[in-house]
Structure formats: structure tokens, C-alpha cells
Amino acid sequence: MSEVYVWIRSLWLLWLFLVFVAGVAWIYWPKRRDELERHGQIPFKDDGEPLP
């Protein structure tokens, strides 16, 4: 039983690492750059100014 637990535990570590890498790749994908820059400017916008 403990051998199976160790094997499954190692797979979860791999799975979580892959999910993390996929999330970072999705966030920093070059096509998303303009959208992320617009979102980054939200705190600096005036309350009366509409968002793009």
C-alpha cells in the first residue's frame, strides 16, 4: 500500500507543477500583452473615465 501511495504522490507533484507552468504560460503569452497592460492601468484611471 505504501508503494502505491508514494507513486500517486509523485504524480500529484508532477500534475501540480504542470498546472503551474501552464498558468504562467497562459498569463505571459505574447498575444495577451495588450490586455494585461490595460488591466494593469485600472488602478490609475479616474473614476469617471470609462474602461476601454
Rank of each mutant, 00 (worst) to 15 (best):
Y28P: 05
R9P: 00
Y28G: 10
G48R: 02
V21E: 01
Q41P: 01
I8R: 05
V6L: 08
I27E: 04
V19M: 08
R38S: 02
F44R: 00
F20L: 15
G48Y: 04
P43R: 01
W26Y: 14
L13C: 06
L16F: 14
V21G: 01
L18Q: 14
L11T: 05
E49D: 10
R38A: 07
Y28D: 13
P52C: 01
G40Q: 04
E3R: 07
V19S: 07
L14C: 13
E3K: 03
L36D: 03
G23C: 13
I8A: 08
W7S: 11
S10R: 12
W29R: 13
H39I: 07
K45I: 03
W29C: 00
S10I: 00
F17P: 00
Y28V: 15
V6N: 08
E37R: 05
E3P: 04
L16T: 11
W7M: 12
E35R: 10
S10G: 09
W7G: 05
L51R: 01
W12H: 09
L11Q: 15
L18A: 15
I8P: 00
W29M: 07
G48F: 00
P52V: 01
W26N: 12
P30E: 09
D46A: 14
L36C: 09
E35L: 10
D34H: 10
W29F: 14
V24L: 15
P52W: 00
K31M: 12
D34G: 11
D34S: 14
I27T: 14
W7F: 12
Y28R: 14
R38H: 07
P50M: 02
W7Y: 13
R38W: 06
D46V: 01
F44T: 01
